[in-house]
Amino acid sequence: MTAQDAVSEGTDGAPYLRIDAMVWLRETLADGGDALLDLPDRKSWRHQLFEHACAYADLPVVAQLGWAMHALGEADTTVRLDTARALWRMGEHEFAGDLLRHILLSAPEQPEARHLHQDWSQWCHAPPLGGAMPCDEELRLQPLGHHHVDDFRWQYVDPDIAMLCNLPSFADTEQWHAWLDETWGGGDQALLGIWHRQWGFIGCVGLGVYEDLGFFHYWLGNEFRGYGFGPRAGRVLLNFAREHWGVRACYAKVYVSNASSQRGLAKIGFDATDIPLLGNEAMPELLMHWPADEHCSAEEAHRLFVALDIETQVALPLAHTAR
């Protein structure tokens, strides 16, 4: 059975939907216990589960099984490459590098290994934000890179994300790569993937910075909403930005009709303002401010929106516009 069979047909016990497959993989690993990862006679099971994990881009399971298979000496070059790629995408850069060097020592002319090692090395030597990866006990935030395109795609499939977050509906992979280059190219945007230690990539959090002000946004994949992951990721990023980037205050905008996002921002510490936003009469927007006890003003928000080239306009008081 190929990995494509697992996705298209759901054969041999593998569920059709990705989140169901991820749960199934974890339940199977738990039922098998340590023996599934250690005993030689479970080799066929390990390889079968590894194929399923790769098919559904379940990177934590790919890394767990692939590393066990490597340690047991039963991983071929393809398995080790898939494992190294998963570790790199998850932010486990040292483990990925160790495995890639091991592959190159045993197969120095392997072209895919050489290319992957080159890409990994370039990323590690000059990562966005200096490689900063703020985290808490479950979540890790890491700069979004071109090697995360498949992880992004799995979660971004929900069309509501693009609509509610004013993000592009990408026509193809090339458009996504161009958008990512443009996002990082201005030097004033930080875009980080939200990685759960058990479930992998679950969404994105972003912060545009101008002087000591920030503009905050985030989104989560459909299966991971309602568990508090978004507010937790937001608190991790904003606390990091305040400590390391000198961000004093932050603004976010949300559709008035999007009550769930308003609640999520409130859990981070944002408070609704009475500052009007212009430019979208069909779907009016609310401006929110963090932290709640920090002074905010229309003039400050206007200056931030102009500096970051945000399409929505902040309505200034008449006395200000008259000057």
Score class of each variant (00 low, 15 high):
residue 51 E to R: 15
residue 191 L to E: 02
residue 209 V to C: 06
residue 138 E to Y: 12
residue 245 W to Y: 11
residue 270 F to L: 07
residue 135 C to T: 15
residue 311 E to L: 04
residue 123 W to S: 10
residue 102 H to E: 14
residue 214 G to A: 06
residue 16 Y to K: 01
residue 6 A to F: 00
residue 77 T to F: 00
residue 73 G to M: 06
residue 144 L to H: 03
residue 132 A to F: 13
residue 121 S to L: 12
residue 87 L to D: 05
residue 160 D to G: 06
residue 279 G to A: 13
residue 224 F to S: 09
residue 225 R to M: 02
residue 80 R to G: 05
residue 19 I to S: 11
residue 228 G to W: 05
residue 138 E to R: 03
residue 149 V to E: 13
residue 116 L to M: 07
residue 62 V to A: 00
residue 154 W to V: 07
residue 2 T to S: 11
residue 93 H to C: 11
residue 195 W to N: 14
residue 150 D to G: 13
residue 302 H to V: 00
residue 179 W to V: 08
residue 314 V to Y: 11
residue 70 H to P: 07
residue 123 W to G: 07
residue 81 L to W: 02
residue 83 T to M: 01
residue 191 L to N: 04
residue 30 A to Q: 09
residue 247 V to A: 09
residue 80 R to S: 15
residue 78 T to S: 01
residue 254 V to E: 12
residue 11 T to Y: 11
residue 257 S to V: 13
residue 58 D to T: 15
residue 116 L to F: 09
residue 33 G to L: 11
residue 155 Q to N: 04
residue 298 A to N: 09
residue 142 Q to I: 05
residue 32 G to M: 08
residue 149 V to T: 12
residue 149 V to Q: 05
residue 91 G to A: 06
residue 171 A to D: 08
residue 289 H to P: 10
residue 250 C to E: 05
residue 288 M to L: 14
residue 253 K to T: 13
residue 45 W to L: 14
residue 182 E to P: 08
residue 88 W to T: 02
residue 278 L to D: 14
residue 1 M to D: 13
residue 135 C to I: 04
residue 232 R to I: 05
residue 228 G to L: 02
residue 255 Y to V: 06
residue 103 I to H: 03
residue 118 Q to L: 12
residue 123 W to E: 13
residue 308 L to H: 11
residue 182 E to K: 10
residue 230 G to R: 01
residue 268 I to W: 06
residue 78 T to D: 12
residue 132 A to M: 15
residue 231 P to K: 00
residue 138 E to Q: 08
residue 71 A to L: 01
residue 225 R to Y: 12
residue 36 L to D: 08
residue 16 Y to T: 15
residue 226 G to N: 01
residue 76 D to R: 14
residue 64 Q to Y: 03
residue 12 D to W: 00
residue 100 L to W: 04
residue 49 L to P: 14
residue 64 Q to I: 01
residue 6 A to I: 03
residue 105 L to S: 12
